[in-house]
Design a binder for these strands. Structure first.
Length: 488
DNA sequence: ATGTGC
């Protein structure tokens, strides 16, 4: 291996500059592909199909500049998790596999004015109460039990529905990506089957890597931005990570099947059937976009209801109103979405379907889509690490529009499969160790889930965030450490 | 991620 190339078992990456690697265009690739990573992270990324999948995505019509893999990238369905693909919205296409099965899987951070000392001694009561009151695990049971009419309203209006029904305050909408609502949602494009799956899961965490975590802020790296975000050391915050449950999963599946049937021509030209895409301008592209936006609204309501219930739990445990505890939403970011955005491409303004799959929007200071409260410092970005590592708050960096279509990483990224994790770890032992060594209280529906999510199955979130910060796509603002964690 | 295969 020379200084300027990295050999990944048959795929050679050329070093463009520090932390920027390029797979040159060849064969039917329409653009080069880029990986943003240190050599240490590349050593992990090359171990699965991520790089081949990344190359494959450059075959998608309308791919612009290059396909990009974030420092936390790993293999996914067709398109890598941690992938960003900007596809021309007029002449390109839209691909459900490049959005992900869990449409608008995402994360929000709610602040409090409590300190770690206020909470110490109450951890067990708090974790028990959160676990008892917030539905989690596979299958049904949500905070709101409803008919399909309510599902339709949620799909159409997102967090506006929650506001009108007493589950949100105006301020919650103002501190959410897209204000908790995609205008282009079309509930009529979501199948009855998807709605039936969703109707009893409104306000539920789900399983897998989804969780609710009470954390304490351990470091504030940037005074000006930390103060604009209202973050200080020892403060208690709450992180909620979940998505669109069965409704989003069913929607992704429905459209993959439709595309396979109706757009065989395009499919046959792609190197992987899992990249199935609907050509821009086709009826199916419009239908999927309407359905995906509706599922995005559903996921935002899901996180909103869980946050609402969390406020109620804190009120009972700490015997004060949530307003008194200043339990305000810092921000909510989507991890699995596509959005029509206008970007500058070689001096030309172009409308693109920006696919962010396991990637976070990271708009810099001054961008009109950054909420007014944060416009001067940049959009908040929340990057969860494992339940033993804690998380980061970043802000959209100056270089994100040029390097990544305004995106950065979304998490630590898995190191091993769920099956492998269950062979390596025993859930109960992981819980005991976290409590004894780090005073982290974990409560889960299933020990298997704890084993699958053991801290050791994740990459080093510090290293992922370091690369984002060094590249100036998302800058470090604060770090948190877990106190209580509930999961499915 | 997911009424734990597509």
């Amino acid at each position: 291996m020379s200084n300027s190339t990295f050999d990944a078992d048959g795929i050679t990456l050329e070093k463009v500059r520090e932390y920027v690697w390029e797979i040159p265009q060849e064969g039917d690739m329409r653009t080069p592909a880029r990986v943003l990573a240190s050599e240490a992270l590349l050593e992990e990324i090359k171990e699965d199909k991520t790089l081949q999948q990344l190359k494959n995505t450059t075959h998608l019509p309308g791919i612009t500049k290059h396909a990009i893999c974030m420092p936390d990238g790993h293999q996914g369905y067709g398109f890598p998790v941690g992938g960003v693909g900007a596809l021309d919205a007029e002449n390109g296409c839209i691909s459900p596999g490049a959005v992900g099965y869990d449409i608008n899987c995402g994360v929000r951070m709610m602040k409090t004015n409590l300190t770690y000392d206020d909470l110490k001694g109450n951890e067990q009561e708090l974790v028990d109460s959160l676990f008892a009151n917030i539905p989690s695990g596979l299958g049904g049971g949500g905070i709101v039990e409803s008919g399909v009419d309510t599902v339709d309203e949620i799909l159409a209006r997102g967090v506006d529905w929650a506001l009108e029904n007493g589950y949100a305050v105006e301020d919650d909408l103002l501190h959410c990506e897209d204000e908790g609502h995609r205008e282009e949602a079309d509930p009529s494009k979501i199948s009855q089957k998807a709605k039936d799956r969703g109707k009893n899961q409104i306000g539920s965490l789900g399983s897998g890597n989804h969780f609710l975590e009470v954390q304490r802020v351990t470091d504030v790296f940037h005074d000006e931005v930390g103060s604009a975000y209202g973050l200080e050391e020892d403060q208690i915050v709450v992180l909620i990570h979940c998505g669109s449950r069965g409704l989003g999963h069913q929607t992704c599946n429905d459209y993959l099947r439709k595309i396979e049937k109706q757009h065989q021509g395009l499919l046959n030209k792609l190197p992987d059937k899992e990249l199935a895409a609907a050509p821009a301008g086709s009826q199916l592209a419009e239908d999927y976009y309407g359905a995906m936006n509706a599922a995005i609204n559903f996921a935002w309501v899901n996180r909103q209801l869980i946050m609402h219930r969390t406020r109620e739990v804190f009120e009972r445990v700490f015997d004060r109103s949530w307003e008194e505890m200043e339990m305000d939403l810092l921000y909510d970011v989507a991890h699995n979405i596509a959005k029509k955005e206008v970007h500058d491409v070689d001096g030309e303004e172009r409308e693109l379907y920006v696919h962010r799959k396991g990637a976070t929007r990271a708009f810099p200071a001054g961008h009109p889509d950054v909420p007014e409260a944060y416009r001067d410092v940049g959009q908040p970005i929340i990057i969860p690490g494992s339940m033993g590592a804690g998380s980061y708050v970043l802000r959209g960096g100056e270089n994100s529009m040029e390097l990544t279509f305004g995106s950065t990483a979304h998490g630590a990224g898995r190191l091993m499969s769920r099956t492998q994790a269950k062979n390596e770890y025993w859930g109960g032992d992981v819980q005991d160790e976290l409590e004894a060594q780090d005073q982290i209280y974990v409560k889960a529906q299933s020990g298997a889930t704890v084993a699958e999510e053991a801290p050791g199955v994740y990459k080093d979130v510090d290293e992922v965030v370091r690369i984002s910060d060094e590249l100036g796509i998302g800058d470090k603002v604060a770090r948190t450490f877990p106190v209580c964690n509930i999961k499915g």
